[in-house]
């Protein structure tokens, strides 16, 4: 069964006619071409599909697109302003927190939601906040360092 919905993604409204069973990650990637959001386990375990829904992190594989109507959806494509990276993205680049990059979009979005809630975190709090996002490459150390550095930058301390 198809339904007309309006999705607001990265500040842009899209009128869509989609099957009601399609998940948000599918609609973002396949209908809107926003492939920055990744898909791997499709059951909410790996965190690669993390987006922000009303500023809260969400596994977009576990959310139906129809449920996301009327909400503010932010994906990795919505963080930078033109070529100017978000301080979190800058910190990921600077601290070598990226290797294969497949977990990076989800990791950055999870960290963004966390820092919005907790602007002065400890390393242990950062680890907990990103513990829903799997990374096999980095060992997480440089990701934790990057999020810590970004928090300082966002507080205007760096």
């Amino acid at each position: 069964m198809k339904r007309d919905i309006t999705l607001k993604v990265n500040g842009i409204k899209y009128n869509l006619n989609i099957e009601t069973h399609r998940t948000l990650v599918e609609v973002l990637r396949e209908t809107l071409g926003l492939t920055g959001t990744k898909k791997s386990c499709n059951e909410g375990e790996c965190g690669t599909c993390t987006v922000l829904i009303d500023n809260k992190p969400a596994a977009s594989c576990l959310v139906l697109a129809v449920e996301a109507q009327g909400r503010e959806i932010i994906t990795i494509e919505g963080l930078a302003e033109g070529t100017k990276l978000h301080p979190l993205q800058e910190a990921f680049v600077k601290h070598m927190a990226i290797q294969c990059g497949f977990c990076t979009p989800g990791m950055v979005m999870a960290a963004k939601a966390f820092l919005d809630e907790n602007p002065s975190p400890t390393a242990a709090e950062i680890r907990k906040a990103i513990s829903g996002n799997l990374c096999r490459c980095t060992g997480y150390q440089q990701i934790v360092d990057a999020v810590m550095a970004a928090s300082a930058a966002l507080r205007g301390e760096a």
Binding site: G36, I76, E77, F92, V93, M96, I98, G101, V108
Partner: peptide
């Protein structure tokens, strides 16, 4: 900086 850091961190 990694050659691929920016495309990866922006989802491109």
């Amino acid at each position: 900086e990694r050659t691929d850091a920016r495309p990866k961190v922006t989802g491109k």
